[in-house]
Nucleic acid binder design. Structure first.
Lengths: 210, 210
DNA sequence: TATTCTCTCCATCATTTGATGGAAGCAAAC
DNA sequence: GTTTGCTTCCATCAAATGATGGAGAGAATA
């Protein structure tokens, strides 16, 4: 009962999906303005008019990328939540950090685009209603018992601090890895250690004080 | 004995300096490709040819911005180091976080441009030899006793985690502040609390174990 | 006063970039 | 076999963008 368009959107071999995947990578590397539709078309090996045929204007494609990433990320968070549910806070965080770090290193475009959205303004107004996971994570981590719409600012910022710490090391790999002079595998391993070392104690300590 | 050009560069009222300051702000908001020379010229209230007269091509101006920011940041780090020298680790970090957070909130372009450099590729190759402070901070924080050129990767990543955590909240203000629904002053205060809460315990705890 | 030098703007250019119309290819439906 | 609808590419356009030449204003210098 799926329309041809919906079908095409789901088939990863379809032209429309291939364009979206390429756009994801290129937008992630160069940002919105640093990316040209020609760069994306070339990555796929097609003409730009084919790109415009499937996705309309550049901004529409960019918004589609954001929505796609957000959907994928949301699902991943649900998966992780299932795994860590019920464990003590320290273990919960350790597993979440390990799992999410692996996930983002496998798909660095996600970290890149998230950070781009946070820090960069866009000349073309990209305003987009995207589900926001921060409040859900705060609850999952036991930082608040209130409903997502009433999450305290402090709990929100704590979650953002943790999530962004991960994103930074993934998105900054090209810059940081030469600085520390490590091979990729070694870098990933050390990043995980560092993240767990820096981020976990504060939360565990506070929980112990209660 | 200063050439007219050097003199102009130092006088903050000079056209050349005014352009640099405007470029700093605009590049910080929109990134390299998101910024046009016309946007910068308009911000200063001049013609683009005046801009090109003083700074050459766009890439040169961008590199000048990076160098300028780096110089300023380097000086600030030296100042902070003097203040915190000799204090216990926990206090050292608390003061450093407070001071640097105020500094970056007062000049958010610095955080913006630092993060842009970390995460975004540039089509025009901007490769620039800039002094790197990470190793120095690692020593100042007592994370290593080795010379800057032999700082262990782990210590480097710990410093990056701390610095980037600060940058994120400054650069992401436009995105995060509506999320937590706080006035600016309140946001800054909560960011400082959150940063100190999340970042300090790990380091203090480790020091206590030695 | 005449000359030189510095700075600024206007007019203009070449290239890049987002976007479109229309022809051609091609498979499915008739 | 013809028609229909979907997809792709070529040619092309208009606007945006980085960049420059040259004229003119004004101060400093001779």
């Amino acid at each position: 009962m799926a329309t041809p368009l919906e079908k095409a959107h789901k088939d990863p071999e379809s032209m429309k999906a291939r364009i979206l995947a390429a756009a994801c990578r290129i937008f992630g590397e160069y940002g919105f303005h640093g990316t040209t539709t020609r760069m994306i078309a070339q990555e796929v090996g097609i003409d730009i008019s084919t790109l415009h045929y499937h996705w309309g204007e550049k901004k529409d494609l960019y918004e589609a990328v954001i929505l796609d990433i957000n959907k994928d990320l949301g699902q991943k968070l649900i998966d992780v939540e299932k795994i860590i549910h019920g464990l003590p806070l320290g273990e919960r965080m350790a597993i979440a950090i390990d799992t999410m770090t692996d996930y983002f290193f496998a798909r660095p475009e996600i970290s890149n685009i998230m950070l781009f959205r946070y820090i960069a303004k866009t000349r073309d107004n990209v305003d987009l209603r995207v589900p926001e996971f921060t409040a859900d994570i705060a609850r999952s981590m036991g930082l608040t018992r209130k409903s997502p719409h009433h999450t305290p600012p402090r709990a929100m910022l704590e979650v953002l601090a943790v999530m962004n710490a991960i994103h930074n090391f993934i998105s900054g790999e090209n810059f940081f890895r030469p600085m520390v002079n490590l091979e990729r595998e070694e870098y990933i391993k050390t990043v995980k250690e560092t993240l767990k070392f820096v981020l976990i104690p504060a939360f565990v300590q506070r929980e112990g004080e209660k």
